[in-house]
Amino acid sequence: MFAACADPKAIEGLTWAACYLTSGKHLDFYWSFVTVLMLLAITAPAALAMGFAGATAARSRFLPLSLLGKAYAAIVRGVPDIVFFLFFVIALDQGIEWMKHQIVCPDWTEPVRQGLEFRVCPQAKVPLGSSSAIWHQAYGFGLAVFTFAIVFGAFAANVLYGAMSAVPRSQLETAEAYGMSQGQVFRRILVPQMWVYALPGLSNLWMILIKATPLLFLLGVKDIVYWARELGGSKTQAYEYPHPDWRLWYFLGLLVFYLLFTKVSEIVLARLSARLSHGQATAAGEAMRKVAA
């Protein structure tokens, strides 16, 4: 990056450290933090939307829909999330390719599953074998985001379902007495009031989501864990910057990153919770009223 870094073997001390920490691979490493933050930024609203849909479905009066919603919310209870992660990434990939295969190559006669192989016609590969590496990466990232959204959507559905049932029944009955329709009661009374009940659960979910991001590594995305292992591993003299095994230090760095991240989230969420509790008919709201009085 800098001119002084042209010959890394000749420099030492602080200059060496500065050059080492700004090498091309390290810049990739720093970018991977952005990948993680991006994953969180996309996944959190997506999971919330899935959860909202799931919770609404679970409350539905139409039995099959309600069963579907409840089953979706229940999957998180019994099965480790990592099983879903490993499963969905392959299953989604194969599902998408299979569907594209049906559309693109209708006259393909060979079976898709041949013994131990999954073979679709070359035009049905996603992304196409000829497309550039960036598309492969984007596709992998997209699959990971979708998988995270499905799994955490189930957690969120659980939280929101509980929150919806926690809104006092009398509030809804009052709205009905005013002549509001079912949809109006849902939109104007239930949804605005449920957030304060949902917030503790959603805060916890956000923490879990942060702590689940290293699993991106298992899904084949080049995330911070991948780079920490890659950069930290011992480098021989063949490399520009030879050094012994420094993986411990890289992982300590990641640990500090996550600790800071969760700490900041905790502080922000506590403030948000205080603001939402203001004037609410809950224990927290009552406590705030007493302090003010």
Binding site: I210, K211, T213, P214, Y258
Partner: peptide, 10 residues
């Protein structure tokens, strides 16, 4: 505050 995954590595 930190992921179990990182704790295992560390």
């Amino acid at each position: 505050g930190s992921p179990l995954f990182i704790q295992f590595f560390l």
